[in-house]
Every structure is written in C-alpha cells, then in structure tokens.
Design a protein around this nucleic acid. Structure first.
Lengths: 222, 222, 222, 222
DNA sequence: TATGAATGAGTGTTCATTCAT
DNA sequence: TATGAATGAACACTCATTCAT
C-alpha cells in the first residue's frame, strides 16, 4: 500500500486487512450473553459467523482477481465451503455482491474516522485517497452489476454515496479551508479522478503512487 | 465532445463517428480489382463487407450501452443479421471483441496523425486526450474479457499498446520538449489518469472537462 | 360440514378435528408406566410427543393449503421447531408424508365405527361419504408422491386400502342389502366417484353437496 | 377408450391420438407459400415444427405417467432433443405446461364439434364425457402448477373454461331439452363428477366405464 | 452464402438430508 | 435432545457454438 512521507505506517495493507476481518467478526458475535445482535437479528453461531466472514473476504478477493463474473461455485470452493453454505448466508448472488460492497464502504468510513483527528489536512486526504484507490479497485468488478440490480436510488447506493461523498467532502473541504488545495474543485471531482485510476486494469502500486502525486499537485492552488 | 478554447470544431463527435464507419468499410473493400485483399485474405463481397462493418459498429454500441455480457444473439439481432452470419465473420465471441477493440485503436491512431501536424503541443495533447476519453469509454466493457482471453502479450495487446503508448508518448514528449508540461511524468501516467475517469460509471461530459482541466494543470511544470 | 336432513349435527368439522388431535397424542403417550409403548418402541417424552403431533397436524395443514411440494424447512418452521427436530421424528420426507396419511386413514376408520351403529344404512353411508370428501381433499397433494415412493403393495397402502375399502364395503353393502342402493355397483366405484370430486381444485361445499346428491340418486335402484 | 353401445368406434384412442398430432403439425405448417402463419407468427421450419410437436406430445405423456414434477431434461431426452431445443420452443417450464394444456383443450373442442352433429343428445354427451375423462387425466398433473403460475383469470384459463364449459353446457342442455337428463343439474356438476374420477390415481378403463354408467343413470330424470 | 434451429456445458438456486454445537 | 448450519445433488435456464436447411 502506498503511503506518503510522514504518514504513519499504521495504514498498511496488512493493518487494513486485519481491521476488516476484525470488524466483520465483531459485527456478528457481540461479547454480551444475549441471544440477539444489537440490530435484533438472531445471533450467528461462531462457526457460521466465521463462514460468513470468510465468504465475504473470499468473494472480494475472487471478484478482484478473477472479475465479477466468476461463478458462485468458485467463490464457495475458494472459501472452503459448499455452495449451499454460501446460499444460506447470501440467498442470492446479489446479496453476496451487496455484502462485499457494503463491507468495502465500511472500511472507507472507518479509515476516514481514524485519519481525520490524527493528520494535517492534505496528508489526511492523501492517506484516505490511497485507501480509496485500494478499495475502489475491488469495487470495479461488482459495481455495474450491483447498480443495475438494486437501482441507483436503493438504500445501498444512497447510503454508500452518503458515506463516501461525505467523507471525501469532509477531507477535501478541510484541505481547501486550510488553503492547501484549489477551491474550484469539488470533492467528487477528486474521487472520480483518483477512483478512475483504479478502473484501468492492471495498475501497479508504484504507478498509482506517481499518479496520486500528479493529482495532489494538480489540486494545489495554482 | 469536449474541446479547448481555440481548438477547431473540427473534432466533433459526428466527425469522429463518420471517420470510423468510413475507415471500416475501406478496410475490407479495397479499391483494386483483384480477388484478394492486399494481405492475401479473399476479398469480401460488398454485402458481406457491409454485414461485417455493421456487426462491428453494432457490437461496439451494444457493448457500450448494455455492458460486455450481452449475448451474441442480441448483437446479431441488433445488427439485423442471423447468428450464423455473425459467426461466419467472427468465428468466436473473442474474434468479435477483438475486431471491435482493434477498430477503436485504429481511430485513436488516426486522430493522432491528424492532430499532430495541425496543433501546438499542449493543445494537440488535450484534443487527443479528449478523443482518448471518448474511446476508452467504449473499451471499458470489453477490455477485461479480452485481456483475460488473449493474454497481455498477445499480438493484439502488443500492437494496441504500441499504437496508443506510441501516440501518447509522441504527444506528451512533444509538450515536454516545449517545456509546457512537467518532465517527471510518463505518457502512461497521463493515459491512466485520463482513461480512468471514463471508467467510472456515469461520467458526464462536463465533469470530464473539469477533470481534464485538473489533469492538465497538474501536468504543467510546478 | 355437509350433512343430510335428519342427520345429527354430531358430525361437525370441529368434532372431527378434535378427535384427530386427541387420537394422535394418545397414540404416542400410552397411559402405562412402562418405558415402552405396547409395540416395543421407546416411549416418547411428553414434549417430544407434543412435537411429533404438532408436526403431523402442521404438515397436513401446510400440504393441504400450500401443496405437496413445500419444503420440510417450511413445515418445521410452521410447527415451530427446527428442521433437526422434524428429522428426529421423521427420518425422511417420506416418513412424514406417511404419518400424515396414516393419520387421515385412522380418522376415516373411526368415523365409520361411530356412524354404523347410530344411523340407518343410506344415511350412514352419506355421512361417511361426506367425511370421506373432507379427508380425501387433504390427501390429494401427497398421495401421488407417496404411492410412487412406497409402491402400491406396501404395507402402508395395503393397510389403508383395507381400512377404507373395508369400511366403504361395510357401509355400501349394508345399504345394498337393505335394497336402498343398486346392486350393480361396487363400493370402490362409489369411493372413486365421490373422492374424485374433491380432487378437482377449488371445489366448494355447496357444489359438493349437489354432486353427492347426484351420486346418491345414481346409486338408488333404477 | 370407453364407448357406449351404438357409439361409433370412430372415437378410439388411436383416432384421437392421430388427430392430435395431425392438428398440431397443421397449425405450424400452413400449406400456402407465405412466410407467415395465419396469426402473423413466423413460420417454423419443418424440422422445428416436428420437434415442437414431438415435445408437446412427449411432455403430455411424461407428465401423465411420471407426474408433473419431472425435470425438463427428462422431457427433452424423452423427446429425443437437447434441453436447449426444448427451451428454444418453450422459453420456460410454464410455456411447455401451457402448450400441453392448450393442446388438450383444443382436442376437447374438436371432439365436441364432431360429436354434436352426428349423435343423439345423450349418446353425444356420453362420448364427449368419455373423451373428457381421458384428457382430464392428463391435466391432473399440470393443472395446479399452471393455475398457480398464470392465475385463474389469465387468458389461458379464461379461454379454456370458456371452451370446456361451453361445450359441456351445449351437450348437457341439449340432453336436458330432449328431456333425457334431469334439469336440476348444471353442466359444471357433470364435469366435476366425471372429471373427478380421473383425479384419483390409477383408475382403469373398466372402472371408468362403470362409473360413467352410474353418472349417466344419476343424471336421468328421477 | 445467410439463416436460425439444435446442442450441451455451465450457472444460479433449491431443498432433502447430515452433523456439529 | 433440539437446533440450525453445512452439504451437494438436482433442476430451471442461458448462451457460445455447430450444423442442417
């Protein structure tokens, strides 16, 4: 993972990865002794929760490496479970895509929440954009299918836009208020610009770094 | 289509579109009276050539609007021919994808050849990048499938890279030599940056314009 | 429930329903203090017995309303138990179907035993046929699957035929001996005639009544 | 096939069977040289038409003998074609069921049209009812699925009811007007009565004959 | 040559059944 | 013992590709 000089090595791929697993498992296995998760859904058994988490991360990996049109059978096999298990957790292909996507968005939200209080504006933005590049890469393969299925105005999409645009706006305007990036640019422009890089197949980390540098330079007040 | 101040309205969408059709038909119906095309392939009958051309342009349109996973049956129907005719011209799905892609690359090559002698470096680059945005948008849906099938080192990919990188390098280095854009940037960085924008679903022309502006600003010597 | 003029309102739907539940519970919870039921099978705990009974009646209801192709998962859920519990009592789908069917047959047997000593021949027949209509309606959805699985000559089918044909024969021949219905008719003809009506989807009680009337008229000596 | 004394042996199973094949083929291959069937649908190629017809009759047979829950793969195999061919002609399971059902209804309509001008009322009714028994037997397995899918008020169901009820009404009222069957009976009662017989599994021809006799006797003025 | 019918491997999904908790 | 998670065979359906017309 790319990170700027001065950025804490805290934000490494490994760390993010770990955080993600962590979060997912937490989500489904509260530490309390109640029989219900906080949102009222029945609590999953430990092994079921593990399977669910494994499926989401495996699906993300497979979608990212093999493309969005892999068979669910492959995903199940890669996760080491039967196809029936996949379907128990995700009753349709769409449900799996949605879970993967929602997970990615959550990671972005958390990254923003960690980075804002701990870094100066431009640095924070750059770190977050680096994360955005990574997670947008995952999204590339599943987004179209997802949008076509659930619709642009679904709760999923509305929520995700809200989170991502919200965090981007927060980070960009913070940098703009500090006078460190030009003001004739919207946070969405920045997202598009950066996100776009990841959409081209086969980008390598070094190139991304160089590109992000160009973008940050282009963003500075002229 | 986007064009910079002072740029000739020559480079309009309509003009590009026309050029594409024109070129394609030419390609398959040489003006000579022989029974063979210059490369030794048997010459196509006029209607067959028309069918072939129709199929390629239809496929491009369908892939662009419906996504890369449409059935060939749909493509054939949209082109007004039977599936058998499609297969006569393109013995496999891949052959059609390849033809569409090759066509797109050709258009880019021609645009570069027209723009270099007629415009100052940065302007020429900006025009060509605008064209690149348009044509990359088409490519988005078929590229992954294509690469996965033919491999990154196939003749198709090698040739296309050669053409596109070549033209990009030509245009970028020309601008760099004129001292008008920074020198710590490669032409491929530029391509990735610009191309990426079009990969995000739902980009509108105005946003693209704004983004291209940021890119051009980012490219100027700091 | 349909009943002829003069027939005691004794034989109401409610009464039958009650009898069914009653009998089932009895079957699995003998009054003795031994650890075994009379047939040597281990005695069920009270709650297990209740589960078993609940499953059979629920299954009957679900099969009747939703059709014979509902999933056992649905049946279990409708009965308020887990699928594992269902399988503990009925090790295969077939076992459940069989239990439901056997239960229905038992009800018919009991009805015959009540009606014979208490009504004149034709009246008794008509009452029993009315009951037969009701219970055959339940059977409609599961019979085919059952027959295909256990075979026409299985103990289940032999036993059921014996019971139903036996009771029908008893009632019909009693009426024939009384000279009140024609003698060139077998009890099985009567069953088929009456049972068939209920097999057609969407029969209403009034139409059934009219049809039963026709049948009874057709049965009288010409 | 059952037929009463005096009824022409014309109406044998073989004859009906033959008529059915005949009709279906006619339907899709008009004798004229036009490219369209009378209803505007494109004409089927001879072999395709043969396949289609084969599929419908095979499906009928398989549904009747094996039940309505056979796999379409089995049907295709029984018809000697690939599953793809089945789906070309019947894009969904439902379409096949519908075709089979529609075909059966057509046969009933034709039988009525043949029998009315050629037989005295009661005889005509009895012949038609015999046919009705045969064809209702086929329907038994597919009707529920069909109704649940297309709805009771679909064109298919409305049309079929219209045809069958219409013909039954015609035949029954003709017999009632001739004073040969009782007037307190509706044609639908008769249908239900007769149709019901076929709904019970495993009816044999002789029993049907005996039952039809009872019905006819029951129908006579008392 | 153009057409579109036929093919069958592959995919999403369901559900009876088994088994770990 | 009761539960429900896991399993995988089976089915409806799609689509790239072949081939008869």
């Amino acid at each position: 993972m790319y990170y700027v000089e001065g950025a804490s090595s805290y934000y490494t791929e490994g760390a993010s990865g770990y955080a993600r697993e962590e979060r997912m498992t937490d989500e489904v296995t509260p530490v309390t002794g109640t029989d219900e998760a906080p949102d009222g859904a029945p609590r999953l058994r430990a092994d079921a929760a593990r399977n669910r988490a494994k499926l989401v991360t495996t699906a993300r990996d497979v979608f990212t490496t093999e493309g969005g049109d892999v068979s669910l059978e492959s995903v199940a096999k890669a996760a080491g479970v039967g196809i029936g298990t996949l379907y128990r957790h995700f009753p349709s292909r769409l449900d799996l895509l949605e879970a993967v996507y929602r997970d990615e968005v959550d990671v972005l939200r958390e990254t923003a929440e960690k980075v804002v209080p701990n870094h100066p504006p431009v640095e924070a933005l750059e770190i977050w954009l680096t994360a955005f590049v990574d997670y947008a890469a995952t999204k590339r393969h599943i987004f179209t299918e997802l949008v076509e299925a659930v619709g642009r105005e679904s709760e999923l999409m509305t929520h995700s836009r809200e989170v991502i645009y919200g965090k981007a706006e927060l980070l960009v305007s913070r940098a703009q208020e500090a006078g460190e990036i030009r003001s004739d640019v919207t946070s969405q422009d920045v997202l598009r610009l950066v996100g776009g890089c990841t959409m081209m197949p086969n980008f390598d980390r070094e190139q991304t770094q160089r590109i992000l540098r160009i973008v940050m330079d282009g963003l500075r007040p002229q």
